[in-house]
Design a protein around this nucleic acid. Structure first.
Lengths: 142, 142
DNA sequence: TCCTTATTGAAAATGATTTTCAATATCAGG
DNA sequence: CCTGATATTGAAAATCATTTTCAATAAGGA
């Protein structure tokens, strides 16, 4: 069987391919929701019951180090993770159901340049995140 | 002596004015750096040595509830607090020294409306934060 | 000044994450 | 296909941040 691209990448970086890693990657690579270590633990144990929570933490660390997932910051807490956006994409989170959408944020360049000019700062990174209601939850609410 | 506006506001909301609260407000209202509870604790104890860390947490909670301070999210962690920006301002943090600058982010409205149209989400909140080097640290580096 | 009650600090409890360590599993080499 | 070096694992303990509990104290209206 062919491995998931994330597993291939981990392998190329010298990580061994184990049941535990396969189980965590399986969950993380397919979720469109930000998940906490415990949630990942619970879901991944369905495929690999012997999995330990510690290993979830260690695998998340490896995946984050490889730029494959990212931590999601929210008002309720900052422990959740989700697939890392590619390129210049940013997160849009539904406050109701937690579903995450992605959007392009290229237009920021202009804003950032103007702020750099005004403040004298040399800007190297930006975080942009939006919160709202996804189409489904909007409908349910109306 | 006249009290700091933050203390006046707390008082109007029914909070009593105590030495502990005065000490914490004194630190938070004048810092241009994001400070962690422990850092605030250490600094505030210079004015009020009997202060307990628990009270720092409780006072931060009150100040955040009043919209006077806000939590600062950073790659290294999300435990720090800083004066809340007024209106549509956002944070710009120096990666080197931790100093915080503020900037206006009104231009975002256009971007946000366009994303709302594209994704179907009803967007109600946005987080924008920039990281870089402040003028001083830029100079020191060059 | 007195009295009610919000507030306090210390200690204990909780929750998340990290470290330690002996057992186990991966995979390169024979 | 076996074998051995060693990366990886899970459990338990340690650590760190935060919250809760509770009796003592202090704020501020009467």
């Amino acid at each position: 069987m062919s491995e998931h691209p994330w597993l291939v990448q981990l392998n190329e970086q010298g990580y061994r391919l184990t049941e535990a890693r396969r189980a965590v990657v399986e969950i993380m690579a397919h979720s469109t929701y930000a998940l906490t270590p415990i949630e990942i633990f619970d879901e991944a144990r369905e495929a690999h019951p012997a999995l330990g929570l510690v290993t979830v933490y260690r695998t998340l660390e490896a995946l984050e180090g490889q730029g494959l997932i990212q931590r999601v910051h929210q008002p309720q807490g900052c422990q959740a993770f989700i697939t890392a956006p590619a390129g210049h994409q940013h997160l849009l989170l539904c406050k109701q159901c937690g579903e995450a959408a992605l959007f392009e944020g290229d237009d920021l360049e202009t804003l950032i340049k103007s702020i750099a000019r005004k403040t004298g700062y040399q800007i190297s990174e930006h975080w942009l995140q939006l919160f709202g209601l996804c189409p489904n939850c909007r409908m349910a609410q109306a």
